[in-house]
Simulated scan of single mutants.
Amino acid sequence: MSEPKPHTVSPEWLYEQLADEDLVIVDATTHLTMPPDGSVHIEPGLATYLEAHIPGAVYADLFTDFSDHHAAQPFTAAPSERFATAAGAVGIGDGRRVVVYDQSSGIWAARLWWQLRLEGFDDAAVLDGGLPAWTASGYPVSDEQVIPHAATFTSHRRPELLRSTDEVRGALDDPHTLIINALDPATYRGESPSYPRRGHIPGSINIPFGDLVDPSTGRLKPTAELRVVFEKAGALDPDVHPVTYCGGGIAASGLAHALAVAGRSDVAVYDGSLNAWTADESLPLVEGPDPR
């Protein structure tokens, strides 16, 4: 039996693998800001990639190339055919290994990691701590744009890793579904002006993705600590199916990745998240703290 693929790798491990011709290193940096007026500003990270990136890394534009622009919400996962084309264009394909990183909190890298898993590609990992951890370890960076070697990516979608609004609504009273909000506690409680309708999905609990990261290093907390958090929440119970959500599916992907690191790799992401849920005024929202 083959060894399971790691969901995260260290800068030290990656540095030792730089000469591997089958390894594709991907910078998935995206910049998203939400001014006080409630608007959303999205900027691809190509400019920061060109300033400094891991040697040999290619750039992937998650918003332009890996999202479904026919969907009502930004960053909706692209259909399998579009995803396969975009992945192949940056060199991700059959027989390749992939390490994804970003230049901030890791949620953008986790987003591409989740999309790869959604399309049946398992040999992908997130660089723990991203570019900041890489540079803190004393490893070199480059400012040369890398031209990808095109590859053939074959999609085998796993629909069980994705949830729609209708599916989440239908599971509100299902005791075997655990809906987890990955946003900060204030937004979960309904105290943030980021959404026209405030609050959280009824019955959902709050595990902020930011609480799973060591603020001094930018890396995920040790696996044992993650397991304590998830076990307390019931997310490691084999009789329940965790479903993560946030504002638009990005932090939810980070939470799904952290759960996979802790041993729960079957987590589904509610891709539309609050962007989709709050757009339908018939869907309920609850304000207040986590009831646990």
Rank of each mutant, 00 (worst) to 15 (best):
T152K: 00
L118W: 14
F153A: 05
L161M: 11
A110Y: 13
D122K: 11
L131Q: 03
S192P: 04
A150T: 09
D143A: 15
S137F: 07
L172W: 03
I179W: 03
A171H: 06
L118N: 10
V146T: 13
N181Q: 05
W134C: 07
R189A: 15
F153I: 11
A150V: 07
V126E: 04
A109S: 12
D166L: 05
F121M: 07
L161V: 05
A124Q: 01
R117W: 06
S155I: 00
V126R: 01
V141E: 06
V141I: 14
S164D: 01
G130C: 08
S137V: 11
E160G: 14
T154Q: 09
Y139K: 01
P148Q: 06
L161N: 07
Y188G: 03
A133H: 10
I107A: 15
A150W: 02
A151L: 02
E167M: 13
P132G: 11
P193S: 07
P193E: 03
S192R: 09
W134G: 10
A110G: 15
E144Y: 12
I180F: 03
P175K: 03
Y188C: 02
A125M: 03
L183M: 12
I147Q: 12
S192C: 08
A151P: 02
D128T: 09
V146H: 09
L116Q: 02
L162P: 00
G120Q: 11
L127S: 13
S137T: 12
L112A: 10
R163N: 06
P148E: 04
R117F: 04
E119R: 12
R117S: 04
L116G: 03
R157E: 13
T152E: 02
V168D: 02
R111C: 06
L116C: 03
V168T: 05
T152G: 04
E167A: 15
